[in-house]
Lab assay of single mutants.
Amino acid sequence: MGKSNSKLKPEVVEELTRKTYFTEKEVQQWYKGFIKDCPSGQLDAAGFQKIYKQFFPFGDPTKFATFVFNVFDENKDGRIEFSEFIQALSVTSRGTLDEKLRWAFKLYDLDNDGYITRNEMLDIVDAIYQMVGNTVELPEEENTPEKRVDRIFAMMDKNADGKLTLQEFQEGSKADPSIVQALSLYDGLV
């Protein structure tokens, strides 16, 4: 993909415009910024974590950033290329609610087996709590990752089998306004 070129080839721009919710001009602008920050044309896990640390200076986002990195890194080569970056950004910032929920499901399904187990969710929720640090005051019933996961599973795990399917996750998330709101945070920002 033209590693350190400051412009993408027209056919690449066209393809990314088809695969995302961005215009050709927006794709070019994002590429310019991506190459400025990642001259090699790729972003590794350490660089990704560094970006998260800028956004969450009062907590430790390392663990959460690693989980997000793994979802962005579609081809699992340990690096995020621009096409992976822009497609994930498109879903998280401008995707439909169902697209965002499928993306979030992939984030929580750490072993990619098609289910979110209690332990997988606990890993992610714990990482989120570490990331936000003491900057967020949580209600008593959610002031630990374990309590939050218990509440989520009580609401979403309809067949009580200890794991969530994509359908259970989507339906449960849509029924909880706070989850829908959290997924909409990026709307309109890009």
Results as ranks from 00 to 15, higher is better:
19 K>V: 06
67 F>V: 09
127 A>D: 04
80 I>G: 13
103 W>L: 05
12 V>C: 14
82 F>V: 14
41 G>M: 02
79 R>C: 00
136 V>S: 03
64 F>H: 00
120 E>D: 09
65 A>E: 01
76 K>C: 12
79 R>H: 10
190 V>E: 02
145 P>R: 02
98 D>T: 07
181 Q>F: 08
15 E>F: 10
186 Y>V: 03
137 E>Q: 00
110 L>K: 14
142 E>Y: 06
71 V>A: 07
110 L>P: 08
86 I>C: 12
90 S>Y: 13
160 A>V: 07
83 S>Y: 07
52 Y>T: 01
168 E>R: 04
83 S>C: 03
129 Y>P: 01
55 F>P: 04
91 V>P: 15
33 G>Y: 10
8 L>M: 14
39 P>M: 10
31 Y>I: 07
38 C>F: 04
101 L>F: 09
160 A>S: 09
101 L>I: 09
90 S>P: 13
146 E>H: 04
150 D>G: 08
124 I>F: 01
172 G>M: 07
112 N>R: 03
93 S>D: 07
11 E>W: 10
60 D>E: 05
154 A>H: 06
165 T>I: 07
78 G>L: 09
186 Y>R: 03
159 N>F: 14
150 D>C: 10
78 G>N: 15
48 F>T: 11
115 Y>F: 13
87 Q>W: 13
85 F>S: 12
86 I>S: 07
112 N>T: 09
86 I>R: 04
118 R>S: 09
73 D>E: 11
62 T>F: 03
18 R>P: 08
190 V>P: 13
19 K>P: 13
159 N>A: 12
45 A>G: 05
82 F>N: 13
143 N>I: 08
162 G>K: 08
159 N>T: 05
108 Y>F: 10
108 Y>N: 09
150 D>Q: 04
16 L>E: 02
50 K>F: 03
107 L>I: 14
77 D>Y: 10
145 P>L: 05
133 G>H: 15
88 A>T: 11
92 T>C: 10
172 G>A: 00
12 V>L: 14
144 T>R: 01
83 S>D: 01
66 T>S: 08
110 L>Q: 02
3 K>L: 15
107 L>N: 05
36 K>R: 10
137 E>T: 14
26 E>H: 15
33 G>P: 02
69 F>C: 11
82 F>I: 14
81 E>D: 03
133 G>Y: 07
52 Y>W: 06
188 G>P: 00
148 R>H: 04
57 P>M: 08
135 T>S: 03
107 L>M: 06
39 P>S: 09
26 E>I: 05
48 F>P: 08
142 E>K: 10
97 L>W: 05
26 E>K: 15
174 K>L: 03
84 E>M: 05
16 L>M: 08
156 M>R: 07
11 E>F: 00
30 W>T: 02
161 D>T: 14
61 P>E: 04
169 F>V: 11
39 P>E: 10
180 V>D: 10
152 I>C: 14
